[in-house]
Simulated assay, not measured.
Amino acid sequence: MGLTDYRALLIDCDEVLVDRDSGVWAALQPLLENRPGAPGKDQILTEYNEVVRALYPRFAELGFSGLLCFAHRQLAERLGLKASWEEGMSFARSVASWSLFEDAPGAMLYLRKFYRLLVSVDRDAEDRGQLCERLGIMPDDLLSRASNPLEDRDWLLANDLEPKDILLVSRPGAEPPVAAGLCLICRSHPKHPQPCSADFCINSMADLVAQHQLSLRR
């Protein structure tokens, strides 16, 4: 299928629309200031992501802020540092200030002319309204990652969609969905992986817009 054959885009929020890594790195600086000679950014983020993955099975119990708070504390322990729960909660609440990638607002404005835009994200209830406003989408179109809409027959029926109508827009490492399309946004890679494991491998949301415009001309 071509880009113009899909009716909806299911877009992973973090690292596609929101610059999660930069937000996490900035919010970790108060902790890292206490450890001269701490590992570099890439290693710190790798360890942080490992901690988050290990905690993720407890997401329903902890919520997003709780998960980030525990991740902050466990990362501090890995680095041989002490961190208070107050510092952990301050880190967790930084999520509201994580910035959008520069091309995200314009891409969303363009793409909504051609698709229904659905955004998959982990956020607490108090952060969802602000995020919808920043992305220019309706609250019903901000979906929890845990809901797995591509396999929710009731949701698909209620929204007059089939998996084949939906293009998942995600980051490298995403598992190809069974019946939907997959577009990888490879922002942190000078070149996308070869061979491309998805239907489309694109460098940014701005490039997705450009590719869509080319498709319209064919």
Rank of each mutant, 00 (worst) to 15 (best):
D12E: 15
A206E: 13
F64N: 15
G66T: 05
D165V: 08
L142W: 04
G129L: 12
G23K: 04
P195N: 04
L32D: 08
E175H: 05
P190Q: 01
L208P: 04
G129M: 08
L28R: 06
W155F: 11
R145T: 07
V119F: 02
R53L: 10
E175K: 14
N49M: 04
G37I: 06
H192L: 14
V18H: 01
N203W: 00
L68C: 01
I11C: 00
E175V: 13
M89I: 04
L81Q: 03
G37C: 12
R145N: 13
P177I: 05
W155A: 13
D103H: 01
M138G: 14
L17R: 08
P149E: 02
E50H: 07
A179T: 13
H72T: 05
H72L: 07
L62N: 06
L184T: 10
L214P: 00
F200C: 09
I185S: 02
L81W: 02
R53T: 14
K164E: 14
L62W: 09
V51C: 01
F59N: 02
V209T: 09
Y56L: 15
D21H: 12
A174H: 10
R7I: 05
L167V: 08
L3W: 05
A8N: 00
L208E: 01
A26M: 03
H192C: 15
E47T: 01
L109T: 13
F114I: 04
F200A: 02
S197A: 05
V16L: 11
A8V: 02
C132G: 10
Q29V: 06
L100V: 08
S65Y: 09
S147W: 04
A206V: 06
W25A: 03
A104D: 06
C132H: 07
L81D: 12
A71N: 10
L156I: 02
C132W: 02
E15C: 05
E151Q: 13
L118S: 08
P176K: 13
I185P: 03
V209Q: 02
I11T: 09
L31W: 03
F64Y: 09
G40N: 10
I44H: 03
G106T: 14
C183F: 07
M89G: 00
A71L: 09
L143Y: 02
L3E: 00
E47S: 14
L184Q: 07
N49W: 11
D12R: 03
L10G: 00
G63F: 01
G63I: 03
L184V: 11
L118F: 15
P163F: 11
E87H: 03
A27I: 07
M138C: 11
S204V: 09
V178Q: 15
S197K: 11
P57G: 05
F70D: 13
M108G: 10
F114L: 12
P139M: 10
C201E: 02
H72F: 15
R171Y: 07
R123Y: 03
G88E: 04
D124C: 03
R20L: 13
R35S: 12
P57S: 05
M138W: 09
D5R: 13
D19H: 09
D160C: 08
D124M: 10
L62M: 08
Q130T: 13
W85E: 11
L31E: 01
P30A: 10
E50P: 02
